[in-house]
Design a protein around this nucleic acid. Structure first.
Lengths: 161, 161
DNA sequence: CGGGGTGTGTTACATTGTAACGAAATACGG
DNA sequence: CCGTATTTCGTTACAATGTAACACACCCCG
């Protein structure tokens, strides 16, 4: 059923979900942040796959679960999850994906497959530092870095539609 | 008048504009692409500053010039300019900015000031290649790279509001 | 001058995101 | 435990961003 055989990018996804939720609980507990049932449900829905998911898709899923179905509900939960570093926003897609390393701040880059929407979070050594250094040289104070690589993942290169 | 003394990031901006337009003409001529009056006007409006400008701001400016004022007009012009590499889209802002090197494809990163909206296009050596290499190692075929750094430019760090 | 392709005008709508306000739930000092 | 402050949530209404579809104008070419 959920998250098992789906062919591409196979792995024990139940494990991913469990780990993500456990991590989230711990991180929030440590910080005194409240991972309410609603926020947790949204986080679960995002972690339902490793694919980019949109706010209104989340909204629809919540609706199917009999929840309130108004945009602010979802956007507020997303805002919280972003603040806590539990998810990433994909700017070039207006979409969201679970963060692999929510325990601490980190540089990251996203490989986004335009074929299957799979998103891989990587940290290419040196990239974050190089950007920071260049900015510093120009007197620019960095607050946030967005690095998004679009293309086709190995699966979709091998197996085009 | 237009683009002269504005204090921050001072430079001969008239020169920027002339150069951008000349470049655009040449590039389009070489490729047989049609830089129509409408498209050129939109490009001029974008180059009116080095700041990120939004589609609906362009729309409003066009309206003030007595042009047609419907969204598709602007979005189609933007699409053309993006295809020709004459402008960049800033994904994290839903905004647009003139490209500094429209003559040829190139890696680039954008430093976006959240204080004054100024956008600086840079090419940090190695960053584009490092991202490409990492992707290749994962079997990922890159189509497009988006690198956007938000923060405060030197002017705004020195002179906060 | 007629036909095909490209560009533009226009209508209508889809998608994405937010402000504002009140009600409910939770935290917190006494 | 109670009353109050704060946070979270529900709801309405709307703002901002972007697109599909079709009609018309223009231009090149034969």
């Amino acid at each position: 059923m959920a998250g098992s055989g789906k062919a591409a990018h196979s792995h024990d996804h139940q494990h991913c979900i469990r780990e993500a939720l456990t991590s989230a609980e711990r991180v929030c507990a440590e910080r005194g942040a409240r991972l309410t049932p609603l926020r947790k449900r949204v986080l679960e829905l995002i972690w339902d796959s490793h694919e980019a998911i949109k706010a209104y898709e989340l909204l629809e899923s919540l609706g199917a679960l009999g929840e309130s179905t108004k945009p602010p509900t979802v956007y507020r939960a997303l805002e919280f999850l972003l603040e806590q570093g539990l998810i990433h926003r994909i700017e070039s897609e207006n979409a969201y994906v679970g963060c692999r390393h929510p325990e601490e701040a980190h540089d990251y880059q996203l490989l986004i497959c335009d074929g299957c929407r799979h998103v891989e979070e990587v940290e290419v050594p040196g990239v974050g530092a190089a950007l920071k250094d260049q900015a510093s040289q120009l007197g620019f104070r960095v607050h946030q870095k967005t690095v998004e690589i679009h293309g086709l993942c190995a699966q979709c290169v091998a197996n085009p539609r």
